[in-house]
Amino acid sequence: MLRTDSVSMRFGGLTAVADLNIAIEKNEIIGLIGPNGAGKTTAFNMITGVYTPTEGKVFFKSHDVTGMKAHRITHKGIARTFQNIRLFKDMNVLENVLVACHLRMDVGVFASTLHLPGYLKKERESKDFAMSLLESVGLADEAAESAISLPYGKQRRLEIVRALATKPELLLLDEPAAGMNPQESLELMDFIVRIRDQYDLTILLIEHHMQVVMGVCKRMYVLDYGVTIAHGTPDEIQKDPKVIEAYLGVE
């Protein structure tokens, strides 16, 4: 599904990510962990086209997407959420999802401005789809509310729904459990597995809550100072001396 071939990102003299090799199969849930500043978000930015890697290649479904523009990559089927919530805060909940739906709604500027019948039909379909997404995550009742008035946990869920509305095959979640209490984190784990099954997704997630990562991920990659120091199943990772050193320091 996704493969990165020795991608590196350098900012001037600083190497944020070096020689990253990730391979993800369809329907896997894979974790990307590491201490703060390890380069996890940078890796996401390279995959989604926010940055162009200085070296290496990114392949999505065997197509080379390296350096492609972000909106083209989303078209190909990769969607993401952000570490710090970035909803469109002047819009209501439904509109936030509709923005993303429009990707799959192929009508011209004129048809949309003049509200031609073909446009209206597609607009209705988009609205139905957006509402069904909101329903499936329990946000339907808040559809008309302003996005920033939602409580934090629901904003996180809305961000995931917004990413889902682009109908992705690969979903990248950047610290979805950030700021959540243990109970909310548990719910989130169920939620992630559920959307994976329901929407036939492949998921790559960055997370600090070990409970969450260990619970849902089949395999994980560990970054430290941009370098991949370990890769394996949760059990293997927990025992890996390099990982213990990176997280706890070593005497």
Binding site: A70, T74, R80, L87, L103
Partner: peptide, 23 residues
């Protein structure tokens, strides 16, 4: 009231996030 307008508002709030919504 239009798709283009919604995209404009999205870009105006957060250009990078809008880009990742395939705008």
């Amino acid at each position: 009231k239009t798709k283009t307008g919604l995209a404009m508002r999205a870009v105006s709030t957060d250009l990078d996030a809008a880009r990742l919504m395939a705008i």
